[in-house]
Structures are given as C-alpha cells and as structure tokens.
C-alpha cells in the first residue's frame, strides 16, 4: 500500500475544504457575472478610458461581464481538479491511518 506522498492528513483535509469552498464560491460568482449582477460591477475587467472608447455602450460592459464569468468558471474547474486530488489524498491518509491502528 503506497501511503500518501504529497501531504499529511491535516493538510489534505484543509485543502479539500478550501477547494470545496472555491468550487462553490467561484461557480456562484461565475453565474452572477453571467447574469450581469450589478453588485459585481466594480470587479469586471474595465480599463480606464476603455469604456469611453466604446462610447459607453452597455454591450461592451456585458462583454466584459461574460469574460469575467468565463474566468471564474475556469478557476472553479481547476478547483474541481484540486478537490479530487486532495480528496484522494485524504482517503489515502485515512486508510493508512486505519491500517496502523
């Protein structure tokens, strides 16, 4: 039985919880960006003067919203990968723990 090589029991639990949090929160944020939530207006990639360049059109803002949404979804996807990885680590840990007992 190969015991976990990367992180210990506490570390893996911590990583699992953080990545679970990351998945939920980043997915939700992605959804909110997708529906153009005004609460996130200050957090969209909008450069100074850029908007002026586009004559303050709403479509430009929407485009930026969707870009941020994609970013969030990608990050959430990476966290899904992390989640499975750390969850697997945790399983290995608990199994080796069980065996030593």
């Amino acid at each position: 039985m190969v015991s976990c090589p990367v992180c210990g029991p506490k570390c893996s639990i911590c990583c699992t919880v953080i990545s679970l949090w990351g998945i939920i929160m980043l997915t939700l944020m992605g959804v909110f960006y997708q529906i153009h939530s005004p609460g996130l207006f200050e957090d969209i990639p909008l450069a100074e003067g850029d908007w002026e360049h586009h004559n303050y059109t709403i479509s430009y803002i929407h485009e930026k919203y969707e870009q941020a949404a994609v970013n969030c979804f990608i990050a959430a996807g990476i966290y899904v990968f992390f989640f499975f990885f750390s969850f697997y680590q945790q399983c290995l840990n608990s199994r080796s723990n069980y065996e030593t007992n």
């Binding site: 980043l26 200050e42 450069a47 870009q67 941020a68 970013n71 990608i74 990050a75 990476i78």
Partner: peptide, 25 residues
Amino acid sequence: MSTVLRMDGLYGAFLLVPVFTVWAF
C-alpha cells in the same frame, strides 16, 4: 480578489486560483 478579477484575458483565470486561496485564508 478584485485586482485579479479585473484582469483582462484568460491568464486572470489561472491567477485567480492561488489568489482565491490567499483570500480564503
């Protein structure tokens, strides 16, 4: 969080992953 979210382009998505962890901690 906001500094990363306001980044243009796809590399913002990859930067978001470690920054989110920092922010979470």
